[in-house]
Design a protein around this nucleic acid. Structure first.
Lengths: 226, 226
DNA sequence: ACCTGAACACCGTTCAAGT
DNA sequence: ACCTGAACACCGTTCAAGT
């Protein structure tokens, strides 16, 4: 009586590339990059470690595939923005939040340059930069600057968040430790770092991130006018 | 007769933190991040794996220390520039070249946020941004944008170079493969990526990098005038 | 104080053997 | 075609024992 469905062929627990990738994402989200292990994965899938190799090339392939699944989800979101500028800001924030939610995506992207996950983001930015009216011959450096900035900041933020999650009980602990360390630096050698140590905790990384995007967008406009 | 020096106390081959770090850098440079192994390291140092733990906390400590040695070297270079703008460009290029020469530094930096290596760079940028006349309350986001951009692009470039070194015989092979892959993408879904596939090989990453720096600097100026 | 090296608890990956 | 699970060649880290 219980759940007697009419799909006799399909065993829900049978192995498949998609199921392996889904389970990998769950593992990566819950226990980080070191948590993704062929043994842990095969246990979750109720199979042997070797079975996975029938569907996946190796660990690098697995990580890239998991990364791509996340990116594809993010980039295929509706994205209805009034202006190209607004679209770029929305895309950037979307990536920031995605990498914040899945910190391992940041380093996975770096480890697979030119691959599909990166291409998805490149394309999204590229289309909006075109719409912005940037001339053909300068589109590439502009897109490349935006892409690098977005991935750079998001990755950094995720690394912070990841360490913060590990250190101490509450989440502010990590920033407190860093701030304390910065305050003890030599005043002659590190005047700037000392001066911003206090601001470290108060600042909202998301807001700073958007400010940087606006800075680059402003630079693009200014370069066009010049 | 041969090399009978007068320094009886000092055994050149004795273990020390510095010697371990130097040997680690050599290992990282020659065989990448995977090449740094306590066993390979202890063999080079003619000792047991356990001996290293007397001078070093763990592998993460080792990697951060090696990273810091490289960054300290780069950041302590003369740096005599006429204007803050020129100084920022010089600093950025210096980091780009350093990470290009030592690709593992890129990911090591990301894995140790807030630590000394990062602080050195932050301080260098911060002092120049101050000199640029950026008001106190917006210094942090500006510095953070520059820092993220520099590390983001440099890391990306290093990852490319690293993969390029592995794949095929000559160094252009990797870019050719990526360009070929991009050309075969669906024209409706990936118009932008396809349009830049051809330019991929011709472009000089260093030039694009500097163009991005200039874009941000222009944005800073424009924000000040506004 | 500093070093040795065996031992522990893991890894990714392969491969004969099964169904 | 797809899966099993033992086996191989590694890891980082610890720790009793040495000097």
């Amino acid at each position: 009586m219980v759940k007697k469905t009419r799909t006799p062929q399909r065993r829900e627990d049978s192995l498949s590339r998609d199921r392996i990738i889904d389970e990998s994402i769950a593992l990566l989200d819950s226990s980080g990059e070191r948590g993704l292990t062929f043994r842990a994965l095969s246990e979750r899938l109720a199979t042997g470690p070797g079975a996975i190799y029938w569907h996946i090339d190796d660990k690098s392939d697995l990580l890239t595939a998991a990364c791509d699944a996340i990116i594809a989800r993010t980039m295929s979101a509706p994205m209805v923005s009034t202006t190209p500028k607004a679209a770029i800001r929305a895309l950037a924030l979307g990536m920031f939040d995605t990498i914040d939610a899945h910190p391992w995506v940041g380093s996975a992207l770096t480890r697979a340059p030119g691959q599909l996950p990166m291409v998805r983001i490149l394309e999204g930015i590229g289309q909006q930069v075109r719409a912005l009216g940037v001339p053909d011959n300068t589109q590439w450096p502009v897109v490349s600057a935006l892409l690098s900035y977005i991935l750079g900041v998001s990755g950094q933020n995720a690394a912070n968040a990841h360490l913060a999650r590990q250190s101490g009980a509450d989440r502010g602990n990590f920033l407190d430790e860093v701030a304390a360390m910065w305050s003890e630096l030599d005043p002659d050698e590190y005047p700037f770092t000392r001066s911003v140590a206090g601001q470290l905790r108060a600042h909202d990384d998301r807001v700073d991130f958007l400010a940087g995007i606006d800075l680059i967008l402003r630079g693009i406009e200014s370069a066009q006018d010049h």
